[in-house]
Design a protein around this nucleic acid. Structure first.
Length: 359
DNA sequence: AAGCCGGGGGG
DNA sequence: CCCCCAGGCTT
């Protein structure tokens, strides 16, 4: 079948249409008011797998606390984590902090100037490197995030699963072919903004789309069937018990290991209930074996449900009386008795915040 | 290639 | 309830 328009003309029309739309419709976001590489970098890390509306207040607080890469490099781990509290994917904060120290101490405070050089920093992959280089340094390199995958899979009617590596490679190639020499940062942001506000996962607003005349999926009426995704396995559900243990006006907290789930965060001690085990038996067993204290389980404070990325949990939170034992963590890195008035200095997981106000 | 890694909002 | 989000790292 002969193409209605040449591929080259189609690309030119897409560039023109998206750039014009973006200059008219772009949201006024804090990191768009500057080309400071530090601000652009911070925004890109914070927005990984995170919606703009969710990330924006975190960006404002974070950059107010650490206005420069030197300030971030000099910060304490706990301070950085506290500012990330509630945003999720906490390894981003750890990698960001590590990278800030590298830039400040090993690169003399000078940021990398190319996408390739950015990728050497921890937490910066192909997407983030392309975003920073194109936005802050005008380098004509592509980005491919969830929005761009959706936009391109519709415009070019990609029928293969976009979870497949070969399809990803093809999409990257399309994106690289599209990105203009001039205003690459605006173009990349235009594709993402279109994906976020017009070319949405469900019920896309095609009538509002500046490139609707060039969209292969729309012309076939299959836009809601793109992108093609593989379905994910069902996530398991776990039953946990958690102990709230007061002693002399303080509560027993434990710090999670720096790597892995909720790395470096503080939490009330607890763990999974064995099948057939009562909550009271589980509390006594877990607190003795994993945290080194003997307790007497008391009343139920809360039942909290929480969903993580790959499992779900029900936390049964009980008040417990401390009987004996010096807190000694098995899998955690340290434990402390902390007064309620100082909780504000500790980064807690969301699942703990769901019952913290009840204490 | 597949799994791990949070939390929130929309349908 | 399921899906997805300005993804990267590890195995």
């Amino acid at each position: 079948m002969a193409p209605i328009e040449s591929a080259k003309k189609k690309r030119a029309a897409i560039r023109r249409g998206l750039l014009a739309w973006y200059r008219r419709e772009a949201r006024d976001l804090p990191w768009r008011r500057t080309k400071d590489p530090y601000a652009v970098w911070l925004s890109e890390i914070m927005l990984q797998q995170t919606r703009v509306d969710q990330g924006t207040p975190y960006f404002e607080r974070f950059i107010a606390a650490f206005p420069t890469v030197q300030a971030l490099a000099a910060a304490k781990d706990a301070q950085v984590l506290k500012l990330w509290e509630g945003l999720g994917y906490y390894s981003r904060a750890r990698n960001l902090h590590r990278a800030a120290k590298i830039v400040a101490h090993e690169m003399d405070g000078a940021f990398p100037a190319t996408a390739e050089a950015w990728r050497a920093l921890p937490g910066v992959g192909r997407y983030t490197a392309g975003a920073i280089a194109s936005i802050a340094f005008d380098e004509p390199v592509a980005v491919l995030d969830g929005n761009v995958i959706r936009v391109l899979s519709r415009i070019f009617d990609i029928t293969e699963s976009t979870d497949d590596t070969r399809t990803r490679d093809r999409l990257w190639e399309i994106a690289e072919t599209l990105v203009p020499q001039k205003s690459p940062g605006d173009f990349n942001q235009a594709m993402m903004e279109l994906g976020a506000r017009v070319c949405t996962p469900r019920a896309p607003q095609c009538a509002e789309c500046p490139v609707r005349l060039h969209c292969d999926a729309l012309s076939k009426g299959v836009q809601e069937q793109r992108p093609v995704r593989k379905k994910k396995a069902a996530t398991p559900h776990y039953e946990y018990v958690v102990g709230v243990i007061p002693k002399n006006g303080r509560y027993l907290l434990a710090k999670r290991p720096d790597n892995g789930l909720l790395g470096g965060m503080w939490e009330f001690p607890g763990g999974p209930v064995l099948s057939g085990e009562t909550h009271q038996a589980a509390l006594k067993r877990i607190l003795r074996e994993e945290f080194g204290v003997t307790v007497k389980p008391g009343g139920l404070i809360a039942v909290v449900n929480h969903a993580y990325s790959h499992f779900k949990v029900t936390m049964n939170v009980y008040r417990c009386d401390w009987i004996s034992g010096t807190p000694t963590p098995a899998a955690h890195t340290k434990m402390k008795w902390v007064p309620r008035s100082r909780f504000a200095n500790y980064a807690f997981p969301k699942a703990n915040h769901k019952f913290l106000d009840l204490l």
